[in-house]
Nucleic acid binder design. Structure first.
Lengths: 195, 195
DNA sequence: CGCGACGTTGATTTGCCTCAACGATTGTGG
DNA sequence: CCACAATCGTTGAGGCAAATCAACGTCGCG
C-alpha cells in the first residue's frame, strides 16, 4: 500500500493477467495526483480528459440543476474508477462536477493513452468491459429502486449495500444521492431509531 | 434486411471489423428466435442464459414488486441488446422478466458461446465495452433525471430522446418506465396539449 | 472567538398516488 | 358476425409522502 502502483496492479490482477512489459506500459501512462478536501478533479464545462482511479480518499460526481441544487451521480472510494464518461467519450464539455469529500489520491489516465493501451494491450478491453458490466448492473438496480421504492426503502437498501460509505459520507450527501432532501433523510433516520 | 444475419453484421461493423472466418464463427453461435406478442423471452426465477439482439419488434424488461406492480427497466427495439445481465453474469435466478410488446425476432447467444467468442475474437471485448459505455451513460442520465426532475420534465426528456418509441409503446408502459402511474401520465399529456 | 457547515425539528404546502367510475377499442369465443 | 371480456386511456375526488420554508443547536475550523 505504500506504493500506489502496487494497489492499482492488485486491483487489475483481479480481472486480467499482464506480462511484465505490459505492466510497464501501463505504469507509464498513470499520472499520480493529490486532491485536498473540496478540491475539484473536474468542473462542469471543462472537458473530461481523464479516466481516474481512486487510490485513497473519496470523490463525488454530481450535477447542479438550474436552481442550484446538487444531485450526486456517484461516489468513488478506494478502488473505483470515475470520470464524466459522456464528456470523456465525446469530448464535449462535462455536465458533471467531480470533487473530493476527503483528501484524496488518484491515478489519472489520459484519453489518448487509454486508447493506445486498448490497442497495445487488448486485455484492457476485457477488463473495462467487465467493470462496465458490473457498473451497469449496479446502476440498473439503483434505477429500479428509485422508481419503485419509498424513500425509507431506498435508504435501507443504500446502507445495506454500502455500509462503509454510510460511515464516512455526510448525511446531506447521501440524501442528495438518493434524491431526497436532508430534512427528509433526517426524519427517516429518526423513524428507524425507534427500533 | 431479408437476411437477419445481414442486419446484425451491419450493426457490428459500426464498431469492429471482422475477418471472414470470424464472421463465420460469429454466425455459428447465433440462434434465431421468434416471439409472439406477450410471449416471454425470460421469466423471473429462471436463469438468463442468453444475450439477445433484437432484429425486429420490441421487448420490455421489467421487475414486479411485492404488490404486483410492474416497473420497466428498459425497452429494446431493433438493434438493441437485452438480457437480465446480473443473472446472465452470475448464473443466479433472474429478477427481471423480458417479454414482447410486439411480434419480435431476436438472435440469442448462449453464455458459453459468448465467452468463447471473447477469447477467439478479442474484438468482441472491444465492441461490448463500447456498447456498455454508451448504455452506462444513458442510464446515468436516466438516474439524474429521476432524482432531479419533475414527472413532466422526465416525460418531456423521454419523448425528446426516444421519439419513435413514444409512437409504438402503450402509454401505461411509458408511465411504468418513468416510475409514474398511468393516471399521472395521462394528466401530464393533457396539460401539455394546452400549448 | 465567530462564522459556516451540518443536522434536527416543526408547520405548511404540493405533486403524485390511490381509488373509483366510465368510454373507446380490440380481440375472442360461441 | 355478434356479444362479451379484457385492455387502455381518461377524468374526478380525496389522501399521503415528501418538499418547502423557517428556526435553532452543535460542532469544527480559520
Amino acid at each position: 500500500m505504500s506504493d500506489p502502483h502496487e494497489f492499482i496492479l492488485q486491483h487489475i490482477s483481479r480481472h486480467i493477467t499482464l506480462s511484465e512489459p505490459d505492466i510497464q506500459r501501463f505504469k507509464s501512462v498513470l499520472r499520480y495526483r493529490k486532491l485536498r478536501k473540496r478540491q475539484y478533479l473536474l468542473q462542469a464545462g471543462d472537458v473530461s480528459l481523464y479516466e481516474n482511479f481512486v487510490l485513497k480518499g473519496c470523490l463525488r460526481a454530481y450535477t447542479v440543476d438550474p436552481d442550484g441544487t446538487e444531485h450526486i451521480v456517484m461516489f468513488a472510494v478506494e478502488g473505483w474508477w470515475v470520470s464524466d464518461l459522456y464528456s470523456f467519450l465525446t469530448g464535449t464539455p462535462a455536465t458533471q462536477n467531480i470533487d473530493a469529500l476527503e483528501d484524496t489520491e488518484v491515478f489519472s489516465i489520459e484519453k489518448n493513452d487509454l486508447e493506445k493501451l486498448y490497442q497495445q494491450v487488448p486485455e484492457f478491453n476485457r477488463m473495462f468491459r467487465i467493470l462496465l458490466q458490473n457498473a451497469f448492473v449496479a446502476q440498473q438496480q439503483r434505477i429500479i429502486g428509485s422508481i419503485s421504492q419509498t424513500a425509507e426503502e431506498q435508504y435501507t437498501s443504500f446502507i445495506t449495500k454500502y455500509p462503509t460509505l454510510e460511515q464516512r459520507i455526510p448525511q446531506n450527501q447521501v440524501a442528495s444521492y438518493l434524491g431526497l432532501t436532508p430534512e427528509t433523510l433526517s426524519r427517516i433516520r429518526k423513524q428507524q431509531a425507534k427500533k
